[in-house]
Structures are given as structure tokens and as C-alpha cells.
Design a protein around this nucleic acid. Structure first.
Lengths: 194, 194, 194, 194
DNA sequence: AATGAATGAGGATTCATTCAT
DNA sequence: GATGAATGAATCCTCATTCAT
């Protein structure tokens, strides 16, 4: 049984382990050894596959962002009206897949990583851009020229809810979190024709 | 060069240097030596006065939170109606004193520190509690039973705007930031009698 | 240069180096770097294998105690009468293997270490217990109920001779040292039937 | 009230504090600050009076040795026969003044200090010399040419009992300790005319 | 006489990373 | 593909000692 094609498996295991460890520790002060051990391999192998610790972090970040993106896209597919699409975007942000303790912890830390690493910053900007354009394209038909401001505000609410969740203890309550954002949305759209 | 009563002076210098360095580096990966050097003293003296790196961080956090608290209190004094008070709170959050690049960077990192340090977490919870109760007492007369939800949402927006600012480059624009939160407020209060 | 199975080799080298360095310096104020350098490796590797300085010390202590135990056991095998066994125990204590300058220096310092480290204390108590029971089982047939007191006294003499040797300069004279203990033994056993 | 003549008072306080601290910690790893604090002054003052940490240690050692010497001299004054004098010497070694936990701890550590510090070594040799000559002058009239060996053995027993006491817990039992040495003495002198 | 202020030097420990096998 | 071996470079923290007042 030749050990071929291990690369994607190993990489995936490391990415997963990275998110878990960052979530567990609560900061980026996670050693490569810890990550590698949790992924069931030596730290040397982790370096072999990723080259550096930063690359491991970035891969983990990409993974989270892509999961997030998939969730949003999936939710948008089944939404027909603009209002439905807005609701779908919000709910996707707080779906059980994204709104888990470890993922929230990882998000917060990736935000910090973006302060230091240009690549991380770029990734985060891409995510922000997508969220923004998704919100905008759904808001424009409803709110017209106010759409820009609304998108900005909605984005801020979503991020803020994430941030606040990071400080809470216990299992995250996605439903309650989504409620905060939906609340905002409803209030803002009240004046516009449905 | 006085040789007595240096303690408060040194401590203040260290606190200031800590905030600057965290803001500059963009993370908590700041060495005591860096901080001490920027504060114009040896790292040994920093330890002499604070005992440990964590204590230095906590002192810096307390400083920021107390500046923030003072700003809010000051703004509240001159506000008469509930609506004025809400506006005052929001504006205080984005006043030039609080909404500086280095302070924003420090905030983000203190959020991370709170994941690890129980004391930091406690401090952050105190800040959240104060903000919440300030918002609530101003919202109740206007919105009654909806006040709770509104306060939660407004708090989230404020934190979210901070978070997003951390990713931007260039000087922070407090006015634009405040606008996002004020927008939210206006939309939410539209239905209530002024 | 084999690259596997280095652990026991490195550990042994570190243990040896530790004893030498403690003996050379004359105190436990020996840095891990000194030890590691004498053992031909980096201090990081020393930590990798032992985890902490205290563990290195304890390993060195265990080594010395086990050498000592082996020497005593070996001597006892070839002794037939109780009197022979007593003599054998005493001579083993001052055999060239145990009664070397560096080992004596290490012993003295382990005694100090036992004041601080519970584990070191435990090791030393084990050694004392063994010595005591060895002496007792050889003394009982000869001295009966007096055996307890004699064992205590003989143990004290042996330790005392070690202690005094630590203060002398030049190569230790095991023969003269043993003589002191044998003297004691003879005097005490004079009254009992051979 | 001019603060004159403080020097001897301060020095005495430091010496006392040194012994207590060494006994408490169980090793020479005692900081000057600890000693000074226990003596009720600043570490700077301790340096002012003694010049260096080693000098403080040496002063403490001298103090203990002089107490010890006084005790022995006092005991010898009231002893008339050689046998009485030997008993007096032994009992003085284990008198409540000398055979206290902290003093025993200090002794053990001074022994270690003597490995490093020539001055400490000299002090210890002087003490040994005195003990030896005291024992010899009392033993010669009884044992003649055997006196040398007996003195050596008796000295070793005394030191050994001290050493062993350092490992025990609880309050030292001077009486039992003295018994061990007296035992030895009686056995050795049995053959000689009283 | 007395001390707070201050630091240089050092030491244990950690960790990302490299390399030989 | 995989890993144990190995280390240089930090980093926090401690402490004896000095100095100005």
C-alpha cells in the first residue's frame, strides 16, 4: 500500500487541527507541534506540507472563508425575492456550521492575524467585499441609493455580533444572534415598499 | 531629575508605550523590552513596577477603558433628552480620543486577550455592562420593552464598526463611523414618538 | 553518526555532565547551558529530553544512587557472615566508584536539593532506608536489640565521613575513610560474640 | 534622636534574618531582598553594611560558629574529668541553641558554601580544628595513641547526625541525636580505664 | 542613616525551522 | 512519505549591585 496521495489528507487534517487548537487556546499562540500532534503527525511533516506556520494559518483561514462562502451561496440559491436573499445571507452567517465556538474563536484571531499578515488581510478583504456585494445587490432593488449605507451597517452588525459572541461562555446561540441582525434589517426596511 | 515618586510616572509611561506598541505591531506579540524601550527604561524596571507582562497588558487595558468611560460620562453630562443621550454615547465611542488607530488596534487585541486572561475578560465584561446600561436607561423612555433588543443591537453595531476599522488603512474616520451607528439608531427609533 | 535512538545516549551524557559540573562548581548553581555544553549539545536539546532543570538533577541523583546501590548489592553477594556483610557495606560506600571527588560533591548538593525538592527528598529517603535495612539485617544476628541503635550510628558515621570529605582538598582517600567507619563498627561489636 | 550606632544593630538583624531565611528556604538561593525585608530594611542598606551578598553569608556563618563555640566553651568550664568534658562537648553540639531546624539548615548550606567560597571553607576548617583539638585533649588522657582515630570518628558522627537531621521533618530531637554520639563514645572507651 | 530608582547580566524555557535518515 | 534529532534565537523574569537624594 503505497502512501501516495497523502498530501490533501494531511493538509486537511492540519487545517482542521489548526482551527480546533486556535479555538481551544483562544489565541494564535498555538505551536506548530500542538497543531501537528492534534492532526496526528510530526511537526516536521506539517512544515513539509505548508512550509511555515503562517502558511498553515492562512490555509486554515482560507478553509473557514470557503466554508462560509459555500454556506452563503447555498442559501442564496433557494432565495427568490431580494428580501428573502437578505434573510438568507444573515441566517447563513449564523448557521450551525459557521457559528460554532471554535470557528468564532478562529475568526477573531484571523482578524488579529490580518493586522500583521498582508495575505490574511487580503483574504479578509475579499470576504468583506463579497458580503458587501451580496448585500448590495439584494438591497438596491429595495432601498436604491440608501443601499450603500444599509449594507455597511448590516455588515457591521454581523461582525459585531460575532465579536460579542467570542466573549460569551457556553454554546453560541445562532438563532438569537441572527435575530439581532434581522431586527436591524426589518427596522431599516420598514419605510421601503415590500 | 527627581528621584522619588517615579512610580506613577513610570507606570503611566509604560501603559502608554504598551498601547502604542500593540497598535504598531498589530498584535499582543510585543516584548516587554520593546515596551520598556519605548517608555525609555529597562525591561527590568518594567517588571519591577508591574510584576509581569500580563499585568502590564491589564494596566493598559484599564487605562483605555477608563479613558473611554470618562469620555462617555463627559458626553452624557451635557445631554438632556434620552435621544440626546443616545447620540452622545455613540459620538463618544467614536470621538478622536477613542477612535485612534493605535487605540483601535489595542481594543481588538484586548478582545483576544480576554479569551485567555480571566482578568481581561472581566474588564471587558464590565465595559460591556456599562455600555449596555447606559444605552438601556436612555432607550427605555423611548422604546419601552423593545429597549433590550435595541441596546443589544446598538452595542453590536458599535463593536462591529470598531472591528471593521481595524482592517482599514489610513487614519480612522470617526465621523463616518459614528454615522453608521446613528443610522441604525434612527432607523430603529423611527416608529417611536420623539 | 546515527540519527535514531539518540535519546538514551543523550540522556546518559547529560547525567554524567551534570555530576561533573556540580562537582566542579561545588554547588547546584550550574546552568543548563554549562551542563549541555559539557555533554556536547545545545541547552535546548537538554530541555527537550528532560523537560526541566530539576528533572536533570533528579536523573543525575537517581544515577548516583543506582550506582551506589549496585555497588552495595555486588559487595553483599560475596559476603557470607554478618560481620563480612557489614564490612562489605562499609567498603562499598567508600569504593573508588562512589568515593570520587565529583560524586562526593554531588552527594552533598543533592542533600541540599532534598531540602527543596520533594522528589529529591524521597530519593534520599529511599537510599537511607536501604542502607538502614541492610545494616539492620546484618546487625541483628550479632547485636539483637541493640541493632537499631548501632545501625543509626553507623549510618551517621558514613554520612559524616562523606560530609567531611567534601571539605578536604586533593583526591579522596577511600581507605582512610572506610577505616573510620570500620573502627566504629569494631568498637561497637567488641562486646558481642563473634 | 540621632540615628547613631545603628550599624551593629542593623548588622545583627541581617545576620539573624539570613539564618532564618536560609533555614526557611532550605538553600542558599535566598535573595538579598528577602533577607533585608525580614530584617526590616531595604536591600540597599544591607549592601551598605556588608558590601556583598557573600559577606552577609559569611557574617551569618561566623555568627553561628561563634554561638557554637561559646556553647562548647561554656560546657567545658563546668566539666572536670576528661570523660565529663567529652560528654559536655557532645551535649553542647546538640543543645537547644545549636540544634534548631533553622540552624541545622544553615549549617548544611554553609557546608555547600565552603565548596565555593575560600573564606567559608576557612571558617569551617577553623571550627573543625577546634572541635578536633577539644576532643583530642580530652581523649588523650584516656586513650593515648588511639585518641586521634577516636576524635576523627567522633567528629564524623556528630557531623553525620547533623546531616541526617536536615532530612527529617518536625522539630529536631537533640536528646536522641546526642544519644547516638554518646553511644559511640561509650563503646569506644569501654576498653580504657575510667 | 536610609531608600527608591535603576540596570546589566544572566538563566530557564520555548519554538519555528532544518536536516539526516 | 515521515520523523526524531538538533539548534539559534528569542523572551520573560530575577537579582545583585549601584547611585542620587
Amino acid at each position: 500500500m503505497p502512501k501516495v496521495g497523502m498530501e490533501p489528507i494531511r493538509k486537511a487534517a492540519l487545517v482542521k487541527a489548526t482551527i480546533v487548537e486556535i479555538g481551544r487556546v483562544g489565541s494564535l499562540d498555538v505551536t506548530v507541534s500542538q497543531i501537528a500532534k492534534r492532526a496526528g503527525m510530526s511537526s516536521a511533516l506539517a512544515h513539509h506540507y505548508f512550509g511555515s506556520k503562517e502558511e498553515i494559518f492562512l490555509a486554515a483561514m482560507r478553509h473557514i472563508l470557503s466554508l462560509y462562502g459555500a454556506e452563503v451561496r447555498g442559501a442564496l440559491v433557494v432565495a427568490s425575492t431580494p428580501r428573502d436573499r437578505l434573510r438568507a445571507i444573515i441566517l447563513a452567517n449564523f448557521s450551525p456550521g459557521n457559528f460554532r465556538r471554535e470557528v468564532i474563536g478562529a475568526w477573531l484571531n484571523f482578524w488579529v492575524l490580518a493586522q500583521t499578515s498582508p495575505q490574511a488581510r487580503r483574504l479578509l478583504k475579499i470576504y468583506q467585499g463579497r458580503l458587501r456585494s451580496n448585500l448590495l445587490s439584494a438591497l438596491r432593488p429595495i432601498a436604491g441609493s440608501s443601499a450603500l449605507d444599509l449594507a455597511e451597517g448590516l455588515g457591521a452588525v454581523i461582525d459585531g455580533v460575532y465579536l460579542r459572541e467570542a466573549l460569551k461562555s457556553g454554546a453560541p446561540d445562532g438563532k438569537a444572534a441572527a435575530e439581532v441582525a434581522l431586527n436591524y434589517l426589518n427596522a431599516q426596511l420598514k419605510g421601503f415598499p415590500s
